[in-house]
Simulated assay, not measured.
Amino acid sequence: VHLDDNELENLKLCTGYVAGFVDPEVRDRSDLFDVYVNLSDSEITVSQNAKEAMSMGKLHKEIGNFIVQAAEDTERTDAQVIKDISVKTKEILSNLMSLADEAENSKLTLETLKQRHYPPATENFLFHLAAAEQLLKI
């Protein structure tokens, strides 16, 4: 995605998105992200608006470390790093879907998450991930 008005308008129409930006200036546009992963500098930035909702728990740190380690591996191409992140994302989503309640049409409920007694940051992350992936029953 470029910092082009048409492309940005299309993103804003989405309820949630993961976008790869080609313009480094996006790091100064915290209105465009909750979490910004800069692979070339091996850094992760959480926007001020999302800090409370995105407080990092163990799962966040594991995902962040995975992304940074993949990016730092000089023997891996960008395409391989993208593939690694894609595989990890599918793994996380598969685990999330396994929590869904068949009686609720394979949707996840907040009650189901609470029954698992996850730490608050993990519960919050999984709740929002389920919402973003349209796996949440409200």
Rank of each mutant, 00 (worst) to 15 (best):
V1Y: 13
L3K: 00
E9T: 08
E9N: 11
L11C: 08
L11M: 11
K12T: 04
G16A: 10
V18H: 11
A19F: 06
F21M: 09
D23F: 02
P24G: 06
E25H: 12
D34N: 14
Y36Q: 01
V37M: 10
V37H: 00
N38A: 11
S42T: 03
S42E: 07
I44D: 00
I44F: 02
T45P: 02
N49K: 15
A50C: 10
G57H: 02
L59D: 00
H60E: 07
H60F: 05
I63S: 04
N65T: 12
F66V: 06
Q69H: 11
A70T: 10
D73R: 08
D73H: 09
T74G: 14
R76V: 12
T77N: 11
T77S: 15
D78P: 10
D78Y: 15
Q80C: 07
V81R: 08
I82S: 07
I82H: 10
I82P: 01
K83V: 08
D84W: 11
S86T: 14
V87C: 07
V87N: 11
K88S: 14
K88H: 09
S94L: 12
A100D: 01
D101Y: 04
A103C: 04
A103P: 00
S106I: 03
T109L: 01
L110I: 02
L113W: 02
R116I: 03
H117D: 12
P120D: 06
P120S: 06
T122K: 08
T122E: 14
T122I: 07
H128V: 01
H128Q: 08
